[in-house]
Amino acid sequence: MGDESAGAGVLIEAVGLRKVHTPRGGGEATEAVAGIDFRVHRGEAFGFLGPNGAGKSTTMRMVAAVSPVSGGTLRVLGMDPKTHGPAIRARLGSVPQDDTLDTELTVRENLLVYGRYFGLPRAEIRERATQLLDFARLVDKADEQVEALSGGMRRRLTIARSLVNRPDILLLDEPTTGLDPQARHLLWERLFRLKQEGVTLLLTTHYMDEAEQLCDRLVVMDHGRIVAQGTPRGLIAGHCTREVLELRFDDQEAAAGKIRHLGDRQEKLPDRLLVYADDGEDALKAVHRTGVEPLTALVRRSGLEDVFLTLTGRTLVD
């Protein structure tokens, strides 16, 4: 049990994975995950990128052996979540989207009690808790009530808690949503350290910078399907130009007509026009040559946001 039979170092394998939500008491069933395939290898950081409602969290909950699979096959650590839920969960760490900390317990008690759910000996958990409080930079908050913690602290405690059983795989559902920039960077740094220690990371996000920073490989999801996959660089190279020129106009319709021929491709958004080109400055000069005067013009490197926009015609965060 637990051997990675599906090829060397494959920890998670999904084939045609589906999840259908049937509302209680009748009503129309909705397909949250509509048949997806992916593989996660030992030691890698694997990301799900997509807007809200794309099916990322649902996929995570199925991998976490919390939510039953509706169709297709899923193997986690070589086991079937349907039959080996507890054995799989024993080797996972889970950081859900909303911090599900035990608000009736103090910070340290959260770690101690959680460790007991894994059947770990008390002495071992006590030692582990001290290490984890240090890791999460919460040593001086150890005896506080959870309610007294800031959002960033809570998230770090949730991550510390998920590590109490030394998991093989760490699942992180939107780990930095709602955090301020400083808290985000601290969290990224901690996650990067875990990755270096060999923990396999599986995370969802709708932040491009987060996916580019943390993920070795990622899939882009939309409406329950995978629309692209690869490394962050590979995705950008495959679906985008090197640079993007962002233009804002008084009268976008009129301006767009005059510069329609510029760049490899263009994308019209309600408030601005994106011109995809390998050299953005060149494209900007070309714009000026047509006599069109943009209100603002910005040349930037292209990113995953642009990949997503290219694939779906919509922005990630509305």
């Binding site: 919390v66 969960r89 024993a90 889970s94 599900t100 035990d102 959680y114 808690r161 059983n165």
Partner: peptide, 14 residues
């Protein structure tokens, strides 16, 4: 209110 069991059911507990 507290959603205590959400996190507990992510552990081996059934």
């Amino acid at each position: 209110m507290l959603h205590t069991y959400d996190s507990i059911l992510a552990t081996p507990l059934r």
